[in-house]
Write a protein that binds this DNA or RNA. Structure first.
Length: 503
RNA sequence: GCUCGUAUGGUGUAGCGGCCCAUCAUGGUGGACUCUCAAUCCAUCGACCCGGAUUCAAAUUCCGGUACGAGCACCA
């Protein structure tokens, strides 16, 4: 009765792991992750990895994701008050749900300062008044800095002076007392808080001493009960520094995973601060300028959140530094968007051709809305007169000879009338041979339109004629022979506006 | 300089000592289909950084080398 052959039994098929690997030491339902951007601008494609990985991992383990704004620096990476809401919005769009908790570091300052004075009181830290230069020498020579021996009372007094403004920025810093002979120089008495008198965009001048990332993040992860941290491998030493602090308090450090650097080839050199100044300088129209790698810009162009999630999940969670072409994302996005994208004809830089169609006997042309989904219906282009005027793209005029107007007829250009345009002649309506197919529009089906497209870094508004349609704004369409675009209202001249997505 | 990390087809990725003459995706090539330069379909190309060691058996473990990357900020 054994139906399977012994061979089949031995040859079990090896399963390929789908999606992300399971989190180590994860108890379903109790996992807490966090995504912690600096709110100095909206999220970009690079941040998307953090949103996707963390939210996906939380989904897999029935856990929570915290969106934490690490806004403790008001000098180097100054927070943008408008960024908080943009980031929440970006997060929700990409993750497909809202973060379970939202934490703003700047509104938790009292807590951080309390922990800071506690580390001082318990001799886990000290006030260091050396200059950065001076301390660097102690660090490389593995020698203790003189401030290290200060008594607790003295430290507390200086701490007071740091907080009341007596000590100016740069005058002192709080260092965690680790061990100056540690082999890894990055860990030797690392700085935890510094003085900042620059007003904070959200909380103003209320605080004079602000925590650095390693301290703020360490304390907050503990308070929030974060169980797993996924971060860039450039933060490996942060993990080590923070673990040293956790040990002092008797806390257990979360499981930590790392990813390597990713470079998306087409979006090579964009940083949030660079984009910000370029927008201010008028180089870009705003955060949603189609040339930018921000989530807002990509969303505006028609990128699908699910495709973007798949993109990052497929790249996985490895520590390799990788460079991926945008075409990989585009390929996933095309798959996500194609089935719902109605086909339309767009004639860029149109030129008119006069045609006598009386011999064809055709009164209308019918085309599918989507060639693979006939159920979506058809498009009908009425051809009302014997002499009609059609438009074809200037680019399609380049080569001479016959052309086939898609789904209609083969034509050839016979002459040119200065006023009216070109004059053509229908040679046949049936499809024979392989006459090059071009797309076109009859005059009564054409409305003026512009297509916003990036060409060599410039945003070009390509003028042309779009097939008349009543799809609402935001509809992703496929322009036949050109690629995907999204409908976006009317421009100042009343022309239908489109933004190009990708091929 | 010190410390840490990574190395599988063009690009990503799976692989946790024998199911591996290595997975999947993307890409390239050829073909089929198609009144879109899209989509679909079929076929095909193409990789375990190098050298030792352990083992009956290594992409998988260990050691050394090389390459690349990161940290050593009063940024995050």
């Amino acid at each position: 009765m054994e139906k399977e052959s012994p061979d089949a039994l031995e040859k079990k098929v090896k399963e390929r792991r789908e999606g992300l690997p399971e989190l180590p030491n994860a108890e379903d339902g109790k996992v807490v992750l966090r995504f912690a951007p600096n709110p100095n601008g909206p999220l970009s494609l690079g941040h998307a990895r953090g949103v996707v990985i963390n939210s996906e991992l939380a989904n897999m383990h029935d856990g929570e994701v915290i969106l934490r704004f690490d806004d403790t620096d008001s000098v180097v990476k100054r927070p943008d008050p408008a960024a908080y809401a943009m980031i929440e919005d970006d997060f929700t769009w990409l993750a497909g749900r809202e973060p379970d908790r939202i934490v703003r570091a700047s509104s938790r300052m009292e807590i951080y300062l309390e922990y800071a004075s506690k580390t001082l009181a318990e001799e886990h830290a000290y006030v260091c008044q050396c200059t950065g230069e001076a301390f660097k020498e102690f660090r490389v020579s593995k020698t203790n800095c003189p401030c290290r021996n200060r008594k607790v009372e003295e430290n507390l007094k200086l701490w007071q002076e740091m907080n009341d403004g007596t000590i100016l920025p740069g005058g002192a810093v709080i260092r965690i007392r680790t061990d100056m002979s540690l082999p890894n120089p990055a860990l030797r008495d690392w700085p935890a808080l510094r003085i900042q008198h620059t007003d904070h965009p959200i909380v103003g001048n209320k605080y004079r001493v602000w925590p650095l990332l390693d301290f703020q993040s360490a304390v907050e992860d503990y308070l929030q009960g974060v169980t797993h941290i996924v971060r860039g491998k450039d933060l490996m030493d942060s993990t080590r520094k923070q673990t040293l602090l956790y040990e002092k308090f008797g806390w257990t450090y979360p499981e930590t995973l790392y990813w390597g650097r990713v470079k998306v080839h087409e979006f090579g050199g964009f940083s949030t601060s660079q984009m910000k100044s370029d927008i201010a300088g008028g180089k870009y129209s705003g955060w949603d300028d189609p040339r930018l790698p921000t989530l807002r810009a990509m969303r505006r162009r028609g990128y699908d959140a699910g495709a973007m999630r798949k993109f990052w999940i497929d790249l996985g969670l490895t520590q390799k530094d990788i460079a991926v072409p945008l075409s990989t994302l585009n390929s996933l996005n095309a798959k996500a968007v194609d089935a719902d994208a109605p086909r339309l004809s767009f004639v860029r830089e149109p030129c008119a051709v006069i045609l006598d169609i009386s011999e064809t006997g055709m009164q209308q042309v019918t085309l599918p809305i989507h060639p693979e989904h006939p159920g979506k219906g058809i498009r009908e282009w009425p051809l009302e007169d014997d002499i009609i005027k059609v438009s074809i793209a200037r680019d399609d005029m380049d080569s001479s000879g016959e052309k086939r107007l898609k789904d209609f007829a083969d034509i050839k250009i016979t002459s040119e009338k200065a006023a009216e345009g070109l004059v053509g002649e229908v040679t046949r309506t049936e499809r024979v041979g392989n006459t090059p197919i071009i797309h076109w529009l009859p005059e009564n089906m054409a409305q003026s339109a512009i297509l916003l497209v990036e060409e060599d870094g410039e945003l070009v508004a390509a003028e042309g004629l779009l097939e008349i349609n009543d799809y609402p704004d935001g509809t992703i369409i496929q322009l036949e022979r050109m690629g995907f675009a999204i409908l976006e209202g009317l421009d100042e001249n009343g022309a239908r506006k489109m933004v190009r997505l990708h091929a």
